[in-house]
Design a binder for these strands. Structure first.
Lengths: 167, 167
DNA sequence: TCGTATATTTCGAGCATCGAACTATATTGG
DNA sequence: CCAATATAGTTCGATGCTCGAAATATACGA
C-alpha cells in the first residue's frame, strides 16, 4: 500500500499516483517497442490500427495521422516502416480510390495481441480484489480524471494563442 | 459517467479507462511542450529536475540520463537546449568536480509550476466529490496498477532476451 | 602510484518528423 | 458539363533529437 508522505495533501497524493501511473505506463510502452525494434510511435500506430480493425472500421493513413497528431508525410514514413516488417498492409479503398485502407496480417494481429496480454492478465489478477461497488468508484474516478485532463488541455491551446503569462 | 459497452468485461472496461487516461495525459504533456516550444523530452526533463530540487537533492546529468533512459550525449544536448532558453543552469558540484549539478532559475521554476497548476486545480475540483473511504479504494487501485505495470515490464526485458514467441 | 572507473562533452551518423511540391481522385459551383 | 477546388497520399530535402565512439577531467582502489 502506498504511504502518504508527511507533508502531502490528499489531492497531492492522488496527483503523485496518477502521474506515476502515466510515467510507468509510458516506460512500459517504450520498452515494449524497444523489445520489438519498433519506435514508440510505431507501437502507438499499431494500437490505433488494431482498435480500428476490431471495430470493423479499417483506418486510413490520414485518420491515423490525425489520431497520432503526425503530419501526412511522417505517417507515410511510419507506414513504410510497419509495412516493411510485415505489421501492416496497405490496400486501396473500393469506395474512394484516393483512400488507402490499413489492414493487419493475421500473424501481426496475433503478435499485437500477445504484446498486451501479459499486462491485461496481471491487471486482472491485482484487480480481482475490488468489489463491484469499489469498481464503480474507480470508474467514476478514472472518468472524471480523464475529463479533467481533456478540459485543461483545451485551455493550453487557448493559452498558447494568447502568449505565455507574465513572469 | 462512463458507460460500459455491450460486450465489455468489467476488467476490460477498467483497462480501457486506464489506457485512455494514459493516452490523454500523454497528449496533454505533448501539447504543453508544443505550447512552449519544447520537445516532449525537454518537458519530461524539467519535471525530473523540478522534483529533485523540491526534494533538496539537485540532480546531475547522468542521474537525469538514467531517469529519462537517454544516453549521456543525448542528455548533454537536451541540457544545452534547456540552458539556451534559460530553464536550467549547470553548476560544478563542490563535492565531486566531475559532477555537474542542475539548478533552475527562479523564473523557470515559477513557469514550471505554472505549467501544472491548472491541471492540479481541475483535478482537485473533480476529486472533491470523493470521500476518504473512496480515496482509499482509489489509492489502492492506483498503487496496485502501478505495481502490476512495473511487474509485467520486468517480463519484457526477460522476454526480449529470449527472443519473441513462436507465431 | 598507476590502472581502472566515473562524469560529461564533442563529433559524426542515423532516423523520425516536418513542410512544400506533386500526382491522383472526388466534389462543388456556374 | 467542366473548370475550379478540395481531399488523399507520397516524395523530397531539411531539421532536430538520439546514438555510440572518442576524448578530457576527476575520483577511486589495489
Amino acid at each position: 500500500m502506498d504511504e502518504p508522505t508527511p507533508t502531502e495533501s490528499p489531492d497531492g497524493r492522488l496527483i503523485r499516483l496518477v502521474r506515476q501511473l502515466t510515467v510507468e505506463s509510458d516506460r512500459f510502452a517504450e520498452m515494449l517497442g524497444e523489445a520489438h525494434d519498433m519506435h514508440r510511435t510505431d507501437l502507438n500506430a499499431l494500437v490505433v490500427i488494431m482498435d480500428a480493425e476490431r471495430r470493423g472500421q479499417p483506418i486510413s493513413p490520414s485518420q491515423l495521422a490525425r489520431s497520432l497528431h503526425l503530419s501526412a508525410s511522417a505517417t507515410t514514413a511510419l507506414l513504410d516502416r510497419l509495412e516493411a516488417i510485415g505489421h501492416v498492409n496497405r490496400g486501396r479503398s473500393t469506395t474512394d480510390r484516393r483512400r488507402i485502407e490499413l489492414a493487419m496480417p493475421d500473424r501481426a494481429r496475433e503478435l499485437g495481441r500477445h504484446f498486451f496480454a501479459p499486462l491485461a492478465a496481471e491487471y486482472a489478477r491485482v484487480w480481482s480484489r475490488f468489489s463491484p461497488e469499489q469498481r464503480a468508484v474507480i470508474t467514476e474516478f478514472l472518468t472524471a480524471t480523464i475529463e479533467a485532463t481533456v478540459t485543461v488541455r483545451g485551455g493550453i491551446s487557448a493559452e498558447s494563442r494568447n502568449g505565455p503569462p507574465a513572469g
